[in-house]
Amino acid sequence: MATASNPTRGTGLRRVPGVLLRIVLALFFAFPIVFMLISSFKPDQQIFKDLGSIRAFLPVGHVSLANYRGVFDRVPAMRFLMNSIVISAVTVALGIVVNSMAAFALSRMRWPGRRLLLTLIIATLIVPFETFALPMVWWVNKLPWLQFDGSHLVITEGWLDTYRVQILPFVANAFSVFLFHQYFQSIPKELDEAALMDGASWFGVYRRIIMPLSGPAVATVAILTFLPMWNSYLWPLMVVQDEHLRPVMIGIQYFFQLNVSWGQIMAYSTMITVPVLALFLAFQRAFINSIASSGVKG
């Protein structure tokens, strides 16, 4: 018995440094979030008093919900949250459909110029958004739109101050096309051929064969589309003037007045971080699978 138990204990002991290292790493990454959460319950002066000691991470001292009440007094937080949820969710949904279809055509169908087109799409990744943001403002300000005005259908000019201007320019995404393309490449082509032989259309192959097999890629694209949309700041700053249409990240600027209220900033940051964390936790397994299978580093 003794000889049998020693190797087990030895294996366990050998694992201790690794486990400790992981705990330290986990704490390292968790500390900013814990600090944000705990500070959201403390008054400003106490936040700064507690800095430099372990008290910064503990709910001690004058702990209350005053900062959260302050957030709602200062910012239409629920409205901003709802706006961001709508904008991000619609962009994710449309993005999955549009980009997966583009990737399907590039990956599964044979037509001249597809390789060149894929190269051009990927090449757009090197152009930073900031370089064409201002021309794009000018452009969206000129775009037409059809809308009902009572009983008539009228053409209006300009998309500024709308939800669509925050959504449509970001639906087509080169990185998402690339991710889908890479994932589709790993699915055997024989499946398409068999389905086509059985009378399926290309759309049928896409909808009934490829997409059901692409769960991890869909999850990854969902997360990678959701995050920048949720964190979107520069674009809504330039194209949205109506407060009712602003997303959450613009809201954080409401707190940077002459007297910066750090407690309220922590409370607001906590409120806008929770949905992102929840989404990641919900999809993390599929996300990791897809990243691992596509060979893409985040």
């Binding site: 201002l134 403002v137 300009g158 700053l237 330039m238 003037q241 600027q253 409401y254 940077f256 007045q257």
Partner: peptide, 21 residues
């Protein structure tokens, strides 16, 4: 009235000026 946060106000004005809005 349209109210903007102070930190980003100038950027909003410059963007609006370029869009003639």
């Amino acid at each position: 009235i349209q109210a903007f946060p102070q930190q980003s106000y100038n950027d909003s004005v410059v963007a609006a000026a370029s869009a003639k809005k």
